[in-house]
Structure formats: structure tokens, C-alpha cells
Computed example of a mutant assay.
Amino acid sequence: MLFVGDDWAQDHHDVEVMDAAGRRLSKARLPEGVAGIERLHAMIGAELGEDSRAEVVIGIETDRGPWVQALIAAGYTVYAVNPLQASRYRERLAVSDAKSDGADAHMLADMVRTDSHQLRPVSGDTADAEAVKVVTRTHKTLIWERTRTTQRLRHALLDYFPAALLAFDDLDAPDTLELLAKAPDPTAAAKLTTTQIAAALKRARRRGIPDKVAKIQAVLRAKHLGQPTAVTAAYAVSVRALIAMLVTLNEQVNFLHEQVEDFFGRHPNAEIIRSQPGLGAMLSARVLAEFGDDPHRYASAKARKNYAGTSPITRASGKKKVVTVNRPGSN
């Protein structure tokens, strides 16, 4: 068998080919892309001779991308090494803080040579499952970005226009963004008419519009502490930019929500996953995306819990033993 360590970067790969005895057979820095993959195949082929490529085991610190897919398609056994595992393994081999790409390639090759039984090979998920993973992760990322942008908007309003925080409950709601875009400063907001406020609420399909209009207008027209005119104008310009970002994020989150449902609905396991209690369409898609659909990926229910990070954690030393519950989302 041959063991290959692949330390990847954005535009190149440092690779080392090692035999079963731990001897370095060859090493090289390869460019990213087709040319690099072809050179890697040539390096491995030169060492294997007439043997099968199935005898090649590769360690690399990622499980995604065209390069990894090309390695799997070539018939190699690919282990996606967690960077934290790689760091710990590096500490086993040296006491200094020395680090280089070539040394990391050597370490990865040696790691899959001696510890492959402790590692998980890249799963054989279908293309449909990978597609669901792409759209669900992008959808979740945009939701996180919307939350961060909303917090920036909140802090900005708190600094110069705190009345807006009292008038509007949901800063990322369409009616709030529309009214703040029209009147991003206290003076302009105090001039908003009941017709303008009611129209924005109506377009957002709010209920109890008359009461909400009266409340918003009363808060915006009351006296509040503020900033000097020039500072207020600067904040208003900044807030308009944040509002534009939130409007776009809302549009794209809604668009990707539809795409997640569409991609997930095409998967043959969609109905089975969706049938589990407590799983709606979006959460079902995320479950499929993160667990994959390779039937051999998990040996047992416990292995699935370990992967999800929900298994109890035991710390025992001498007479002391502590078992903690690792709740989902706590990390």
C-alpha cells in the first residue's frame, strides 16, 4: 500500500508519497487543478507500477472541493483529517513549534499510515445530497449574516435614534425597513404621516394596523435625546446602507428557502426524513445535508449521536468521574 499526505492551499498542494514502512518515496508541490491531479496520478503510478490504485490511501484536511472529488473518482481511499486532529498528531511527533507545508504533508501521510483505523473516510454521499448541503448551508449563512447586520443596525440606532427601537419591534421586517429608509433620522421620522405608516404596514400584511400606526407615530413624535445635526446625518447615511443590505438579504433568504425546499423535495429520502416528528421541510433538509445519505457512513445510532455532538461526555480520573450532557447547539 501507498500512503499520501496532501497539505492543500488555495493554489497548490504539497504532497508526499510514503510506503508501508514509513519511508518517503517522493514528494512535490503540485498546482491546483487538472495539471496538479495528473502529476499526482503520475507520482503514484510510478511507485505502484502495475498495481491497482485502490491500494492508495490519502490524508487531506478537507472533505470538499473538485480536488477531493477527483481523488475519490480515481479510486483512492481518502481520509478527511480534522485540522484539530492533525495539530494534535503533529505535537506527538515534535516538541518544537516548527511547521511547514512539506512537514505537514509528511505528517498526514504518516497519520493515515498508522492511524487510519481512527479516522473516517470521506463518505459516499450522492450528488443530490451534496446539492442539498450546498443550498442549506448557504441559506443558513445568509440568515446569520442578516442577524449580524440587524445587530449593527440596532447599535447604530441606539447611538443616535433610540426612538426607532421603541417604535419598531422587528428591525429586519419589511415595514420597518421601508419606513426607516424613508425617514432614517428623528426629524424625518417625526414627519411621517399616518397614511405612509399605514401603507407600509399594509404591504407587510400586518394586523391591527390603526393601533400600530398610532403607537409608531406617537413614539416617533415624542421628545428624545439626540446627537448634533452633522453626526445624525452621518448616522442616517450609514443606516440607509445597512437597510439596503437587509432588504437584499431578506430577498435572498426567501429565494434560498424556496430552493432548499425544491432540492430537498427531489431527494428520494425526503419523505422518510420529513416523516420524523418535529422535522419541518427546512429542518429536514438540514438533517439530510449534515448527516448525508451514505447508508454505511454510521455504524450505529451511537455513532450518529457522536457525530452530532449530542453524546454524553465522560471525564474520569482516579476517584473522580464527571458525565456532562452535550446539548445540541451548545458548542
Rank of each mutant, 00 (worst) to 15 (best):
I313N: 08
L180H: 01
E38K: 14
L256H: 05
V132H: 10
P184R: 06
A189N: 07
A181F: 02
L30P: 03
L179Y: 01
Y160T: 05
A214M: 09
D110K: 05
L171P: 03
A214G: 07
E178G: 00
K133A: 14
Y89N: 07
E145V: 14
P268A: 12
A105R: 01
V122H: 00
Q259S: 14
V57P: 00
S123Y: 10
V15N: 04
T310M: 15
A299E: 09
S311M: 10
A241H: 10
K27Q: 13
P66L: 05
G208F: 04
L108A: 09
V231H: 12
L165C: 09
E61K: 02
R92K: 10
G329S: 05
T248M: 13
A163S: 15
P312K: 07
T229H: 09
R113K: 00
F263P: 03
S317Y: 03
A200Y: 01
T114P: 00
A218D: 01
K215F: 08
L71G: 06
R113Y: 02
D19L: 05
A241E: 08
A54E: 13
Q259F: 12
R304C: 10
S87Y: 07
S330R: 06
L40C: 05
V15W: 08
T324Q: 08
K305A: 11
R315L: 12
A199L: 02
A183L: 04
L288W: 11
R240W: 00
D63C: 04
T324G: 02
R39I: 01
A289Y: 14
W67P: 00
R205K: 08
V4Y: 11
E145S: 14
V34Q: 12
V231G: 04
K99G: 10
P210N: 07
F3N: 08
M1L: 14
G309R: 06
K182W: 03
E271V: 08
T126N: 00
T77G: 02
R327L: 12
A103S: 08
V237W: 08
A241Y: 07
V81K: 05
V81C: 07
A127I: 13
R207I: 06
L288E: 12
L108P: 04
I197C: 04
A285K: 13
A42M: 05
E91P: 01
V132K: 13
P174N: 12
D170T: 09
L225Q: 15
R146P: 12
I243G: 06
V57L: 04
R206W: 06
P295Q: 13
A299F: 04
E290L: 10
D110Y: 02
R92I: 08
T176F: 00
N269C: 13
R221V: 05
R88K: 13
A54C: 05
A285W: 14
W144C: 11
L157S: 07
H296K: 08
S100M: 02
K27F: 12
S300K: 06
K320A: 11
R304E: 04
K223C: 04
G59R: 02
L84S: 11
G124I: 02
I37N: 14
G278W: 12
S311P: 04
D19H: 10
Y76V: 00
P31M: 13
